Amino acid sequence: MRIDAFMNATNIVKRRSIAQDMIDNRVVKIDGVCVKASRNVKVGDVIEIAFFEKSQFFKVLKIPEIKNVPKSLSYEYVEKIVS
């Protein structure tokens, strides 16, 4: 699954276009490397999103089979890492 679609499906961002803009502005990294929107996400990847001066980290636990995961179940797919 593409990184922009993954971020939208797991409720990290509300819209896929927002994820696309964040990736284009080089705010999103996977395992410390800036990525393109077409980059596929794998289980175990760590997604870093730089919000202003602070970064948030998310670990990919599972790839969703559906387009939009209910917010109450997003913890099964992504885990927020406290830094």
Rank of each mutant, 00 (worst) to 15 (best):
13 V>K: 09
14 K>A: 06
15 R>T: 14
16 R>S: 04
16 R>T: 05
16 R>D: 04
16 R>V: 03
17 S>L: 06
17 S>H: 08
18 I>A: 09
18 I>Y: 05
18 I>R: 05
19 A>L: 02
19 A>R: 01
19 A>G: 02
19 A>M: 02
19 A>I: 01
19 A>D: 01
19 A>C: 03
20 Q>Y: 09
20 Q>H: 10
20 Q>K: 13
21 D>T: 03
22 M>N: 01
22 M>Q: 01
23 I>K: 00
23 I>W: 00
24 D>L: 12
25 N>S: 12
25 N>G: 06
25 N>E: 09
27 V>Y: 01
28 V>I: 12
28 V>A: 02
29 K>M: 14
29 K>R: 13
30 I>C: 05
30 I>Q: 05
30 I>D: 03
31 D>Y: 10
32 G>I: 15
32 G>F: 11
32 G>R: 14
32 G>L: 08
33 V>L: 12
33 V>P: 04
33 V>S: 08
34 C>Y: 15
35 V>R: 10
35 V>S: 04
35 V>L: 09
35 V>K: 11
36 K>G: 06
36 K>C: 08
37 A>D: 04
37 A>C: 07
37 A>S: 12
38 S>D: 11
39 R>H: 04
40 N>F: 09
40 N>L: 03
41 V>T: 03
41 V>F: 01
41 V>A: 01
42 K>S: 12
42 K>V: 15
42 K>A: 09
43 V>K: 07
43 V>A: 03
44 G>A: 05
44 G>F: 05
45 D>G: 02
45 D>Q: 04
45 D>A: 01
45 D>N: 08
46 V>I: 15
46 V>W: 00
47 I>R: 00
47 I>S: 00
47 I>W: 00
47 I>Y: 00
47 I>D: 00
48 E>N: 06
48 E>G: 11
48 E>F: 07
48 E>A: 07
48 E>M: 09
48 E>Y: 06
49 I>V: 12
49 I>E: 05
50 A>S: 08
50 A>R: 12
50 A>D: 10
51 F>I: 14
51 F>M: 11
53 E>R: 13
53 E>L: 13
53 E>P: 06
54 K>A: 09
54 K>W: 04
54 K>L: 10
54 K>T: 15
55 S>G: 10
55 S>T: 13
55 S>A: 13
56 Q>G: 13
56 Q>N: 08
56 Q>V: 11
57 F>C: 07
57 F>K: 12
58 F>I: 08
58 F>P: 04
58 F>Q: 09
59 K>F: 11
60 V>Q: 03
60 V>I: 11
60 V>A: 14
60 V>G: 06
61 L>W: 05
61 L>A: 11
61 L>R: 09
63 I>S: 05
63 I>P: 06
64 P>V: 10
64 P>F: 06
65 E>H: 15
66 I>N: 14
66 I>A: 12
67 K>R: 14
68 N>S: 12
68 N>L: 15
69 V>E: 02
69 V>F: 02
69 V>Q: 02
69 V>S: 01
70 P>K: 07
70 P>C: 03
71 K>E: 15
71 K>C: 09
72 S>H: 14
72 S>L: 13
72 S>W: 14
73 L>I: 04
74 S>C: 11
74 S>Q: 13
76 E>P: 02
76 E>N: 13
76 E>F: 10
76 E>D: 14
76 E>R: 05
77 Y>S: 01
78 V>D: 00
79 E>D: 07
79 E>R: 08
80 K>P: 00
81 I>Y: 02
81 I>S: 02
81 I>T: 07
